[in-house]
Computed example of a mutant assay.
Amino acid sequence: MLLLAVLIIEFSPAHFLFTGPLLSPAPALAAVTMGPAGTGSVVVMAGVVSSITATHNHAWGSQQVYANLLALLVVSVASLVTSIARVRKERELAKVRRISQVSQDVVLHPVPAHLNDVTAAGLYLAAEAGARIGGDLYEVLATPFGIRIIVGDAQGKGLPAVRTAAAVLGAFREAAHYEPELPEVMRRCEAALRRELCRARGDEEAAEPLDPTEQFVTAVLAQVPDTPVIELVSRGHHPPLLLHRGEADALETACPLPPLGLEEFLGSHPMPVQTYPFETGDRLLLYTDGVVEARDPAGNFFDLPTHLAQLSDGSLEKLLDRLRASLLDHTRRSLADDAAMIIIERHLPRESARALS
């Protein structure tokens, strides 16, 4: 459009205007969005337009024409170099994103939509722009003992938090199918975390020692058996929210326990299983601290129970989409921490549903 404007001016009554300085920015503008081929084409077109205007105005031999051509040459070379570098970085970024997506699929499996008489949906929001995975962890599995769910948050950020989350998830995926009791599943996760921390400390022994109190994972385990209840074991995690008849209630743990990795503070205390009613039509939301600790510009926390109660209608996917929109609106799309949410809903068993139909 800029080159066309130059031609129109030169072949119109307004040709007395100096259009030479308008040609130099054309390659630079092209380099912003075009690749080397497109930028090179604009460079050639700018040179052609400059030659046409100089011939039309009988300006060859004047210092103005050669100054304009020199400026066009310098800007063109810089624009081509910039375009090549930008395209190379975009390709590298696309490759990193593909690798990140594969890593996320390995560490965080997609949440299955249907599991026996339970439907589920999940949402993960990374605080870092362009990131797809962090220290938050979750999994939903159908096991011989019922539907089992873990939601947790590894302290810290970056690759150490990802490795910690992967260790806990790997232990859960194995133990959930073989351990009949939830506390034993949690202990298997704790043992895996302990091994990972020992390995990390061994890798860092030449550097500054790791502080054990700064390497931990908060986690909550949930189990949906055949009976209309939900069973929970929590280790320092935020209480799940039970949505029953339009009201959201926090399922507080009667005996708070420290997070995984801080077993020295646990002592000989057992890990009790808390049981709550979970009837047909009830929904349970498990989440990480990035949700409830999200702040608006005024410093106010995100009121998850209120938003959940207000957005309780519709499918699970739509509910999470609305929660996501509310959370991003509350923080002005600037999350300070990763946020993950898992929501499940109990339905009638398939045999009962067939009988009623």
Rank of each mutant, 00 (worst) to 15 (best):
29 L>E: 05
56 H>K: 03
78 A>P: 05
60 W>C: 12
33 T>K: 05
37 A>N: 04
40 G>T: 01
77 V>A: 04
78 A>N: 10
45 M>D: 10
75 V>K: 09
35 G>H: 07
37 A>Y: 11
53 T>M: 05
33 T>F: 15
38 G>Y: 15
29 L>I: 11
48 V>Y: 07
54 A>F: 05
46 A>G: 05
80 L>S: 04
82 T>S: 04
62 S>R: 11
37 A>F: 10
54 A>N: 05
36 P>C: 00
54 A>G: 02
70 L>P: 05
63 Q>W: 10
46 A>V: 08
43 V>R: 02
52 I>D: 13
55 T>S: 10
40 G>N: 06
44 V>H: 09
30 A>H: 12
39 T>D: 02
73 L>C: 04
64 Q>L: 15
83 S>D: 06
43 V>T: 08
65 V>Q: 00
64 Q>N: 03
43 V>Y: 10
32 V>C: 09
74 V>E: 05
59 A>N: 06
58 H>P: 01
83 S>Y: 12
64 Q>R: 11
63 Q>A: 14
75 V>L: 09
36 P>H: 07
74 V>C: 02
55 T>D: 07
44 V>Q: 08
75 V>C: 01
39 T>E: 06
84 I>Y: 15
55 T>R: 00
71 A>E: 02
55 T>V: 08
43 V>F: 14
29 L>A: 13
61 G>I: 10
